[in-house]
């Protein structure tokens, strides 16, 4: 009982392109690959540089004598301050995990009826979701702030988590992916007397695991990189990205520690993507807009 998956065809060559053109295209790919990768490689290297190598002239790209000092400094520095680093990590983790898991659950529950049934309002609702992909969250920033203060959610994690649950790209991608689930599968379950909720939970959800991972890979970095915006001002509720900003502002004496935090911030989402890449590509194959 599995969804008809899209066959991923490897790019075998059918027609020839002249060797020169191919060569130039791959050269282009290599050049831009370097442009994309170098800043990140630099960030990784920086985190392992001893202090004297961080301020060498002319500046050097790669590390000569790698050291873990920056990480030890990070923990001793932040361990002594009145808000320990672990607190920032914890806050970021709470926001990211609750926000991502909640988003996947809510978006899937809403995507299932939209993907599989026609009922009054279904078309209008989906059109509104598609339209909402066409403007960014900043458009709604002012009323959102008022709603938050009216709800009394300013300076709570909920102000970051709750709006992110209804991120519209997730619903859109989930709905497109769920359309592939064969109707026969759902009909069979219905004949067996399963309720819609049961069908959703025991048949639909296990069949859209690739789409969960995709929603995760889109939602996770946004929340992981969140600095709390205008909503959170208590130091003990701030996020890791905010702490990084403070360390970087601390000037050159903190450069090594800053590099260590930056590494921490980028390694987690990138690792998640490495793990989930093939599922994400599989989901993206259904991402198209039909009209």
């Amino acid at each position: 009982m599995s969804v008809k998956t899209i066959r991923l065809i490897s790019g075998t060559k059918k027609l020839n392109r002249s060797f020169t053109v191919s060569f130039l295209l791959f050269l282009l790919l290599a050049a831009f690959g370097c442009f994309m990768a170098l800043p990140l490689i630099y960030a990784v290297n920086n985190a392992f540089k001893p202090l004297d190598e961080l301020f060498i002239f002319p500046p050097r790209f790669l590390v000569n004598n790698p050291t873990m000092d920056n990480f030890f400094d990070l923990f001793s520095l932040m361990g002594n301050s009145w808000v320990p680093l672990s607190r920032y990590i914890m806050n970021t983790l709470i926001i990211t995990v609750v926000g991502t898991a909640g988003h996947i659950l809510l978006a899937s529950a809403a995507a299932y009826p939209l993907a599989k049934y026609r009922f009054p309002g279904s078309k209008v609702l989906f059109t509104i979701v598609v339209l909402s992909l066409m403007f960014s969250a900043q458009v709604t920033a002012i009323p959102n702030y008022m709603v938050m203060s009216w709800l009394g959610w300013i300076n709570t994690h909920a102000s970051i988590i709750v709006p992110s649950l209804s991120f519209s790209l997730g619903l859109f991608l989930m709905k497109q992916f769920m359309e592939q689930i064969p109707d026969a599968l759902l009909e069979a379950a219905k004949i067996d007397g399963a309720s819609e909720y049961r069908i959703f939970w025991t048949i639909v959800m296990p069949n859209v695991k690739p789409a969960w991972l995709t929603l995760m890979i889109l939602q996770f970095p946004m929340l992981w990189g969140s600095d709390g915006g205008n909503f959170i001002y208590s130091e003990n509720l701030k996020t890791l990205h905010y702490a990084l900003g403070q360390i970087v502002l601390g000037g050159i004496a903190r450069a090594g520690v800053g590099a260590a935090v930056a590494l921490l911030l980028m390694v987690v989402p990138i690792t998640l993507f490495i793990i989930s890449q093939s599922s994400v590509i599989q989901t993206m194959a259904t991402s198209g807009m039909k009209e």
Binding site: L40, V248, L265
Partner: peptide, 11 residues
């Protein structure tokens, strides 16, 4: 990778 690297564009 750059687009998901946790907003570390300050590098």
């Amino acid at each position: 990778a750059p687009s998901i690297a946790g907003n570390v564009y300050f590098i």
